[in-house]
Write a protein that binds this DNA or RNA. Structure first.
Lengths: 199, 199
DNA sequence: ATTATAATGATACTTTATTCCATTTGAATG
DNA sequence: CATTCAAATGGAATAAAGTATCATTATAAT
């Protein structure tokens, strides 16, 4: 190990990230043009100029090419940054919204298309919900820490489940109403929850 | 049409129901013994003494042999039976619990094993969550009707999402703690929600 | 008893996903 | 700059899920 080799951002890593993004881009384009099920991994691989085997090295399933994201670390950081005088619910709400406000129009567009595809295609919806549950388990840890309870406390679990439930309803609503503002919908949904579900 | 042919419970229908239950039984046994992924549809078909093609006529996917149930009609009926002076949340809570109290120990056992399998195997969890969303959409209609709002009202949607979220957390908790009483867990989780998530 | 309809089994086929191995490419070192 | 090492890649072979078709068998209706 020489003077500087801590950072993993050599040519190799940069190339991998580039390939990954490229594959996702072509995949989304093909899904848009042909439909998700009508598009084969072989076609995606060909469009991205890689072999099918390489595709599966980047994404372990066809679903993953749509599902894979890295919002969790950001979400965690945002949650832990929330002042401790906020209620857990307010902290979650702020954390979720903070991630969306500073998204470029381009990123918002990508997210919208992704959400529509995911919520429309059963396989993707299932995979995505599975993903949400992992996020939920992460959240359970964080919330437990914050309120000084154990992560296997049913109240903490229920809290995390409810947050996920709000997310699901908003994602579905947004898929049906893509012209609305996602962060506003999320904000509104959390408002309802904070106000004790006024129906 | 003769004097009596309204009821669809001829020999054919009875046989089908029997075959279906038989396939599910053998599938669950094999999944228990070999694991879900290590069990092939061919093995299930052989154990149940049917052909693979017949398997796919009963269940459109391998997942479906675990997921398929018919609780929705019961749940709907139970919800609509709730007195109108109850809040929507209380009505949902009662409806969900009413379905569980009169289950035989045998049925409870089956449900416990099913839940554990589903929550443990990613594919099944995804498929099951997808199913839950369908139930959620059903519920959205019912709640909207009950409170006199439209089914595309975000508040109604959020409410339904939250109910689903509670269910998810309880199902996961129950999979990890199979010795607890499922209906008690559900009751406790809804209590937390009604009390405004005391954390 | 006969005709019509529905369920079944057998076969062939497509696609997803996994595995193994030989080859290529980038990284690190003297 | 050449060489060595490790990682990424492509190609081929394989297994299982799921689909489509068609002949056969079982049930229902008259």
């Amino acid at each position: 190990m020489s003077t500087e080799n801590k950072r993993n951002i050599g040519l190799r890593e940069r190339k991998k990230a580039k390939t990954m993004a490229n594959v996702q881009m072509h995949a989304m384009r093909l899904f848009r043009e042909l439909g998700y099920n009508a598009t084969t991994v072989e076609q995606i691989a060909e469009a991205a100029e890689i072999s099918p085997s390489t595709f599966f090295r980047y994404f372990s399933t066809k679903e993953d090419v749509v599902i894979t994201d890295n919002y969790d670390p950001l979400l965690i950081a945002a949650f832990e940054d929330q002042p401790s005088d906020l209620s857990p619910l307010q902290a979650v709400r702020n954390a979720m919204l903070s991630g969306m406000v500073d998204m470029s129009p381009d990123e918002l567009d990508t997210m919208r298309e992704r959400n529509q595809l995911i919520m429309t295609v059963p396989e993707l919806r299932g995979a995505s919900l599975n993903n949400l549950i992992q996020t939920m388990q992460l959240f359970t840890e964080l919330v437990a820490k914050r309120v000084g309870r154990k992560p296997d406390d049913l109240a903490v679990r229920t809290f995390a489940g409810i947050v996920v439930g709000v997310n699901i309803s908003v994602m579905l609503y947004y898929a049906e109403n893509p012209d609305k503002d996602f962060s506003k919908l999320m904000d509104e949904a959390f408002s309802n929850l904070e106000n004790g579900l006024p129906l």
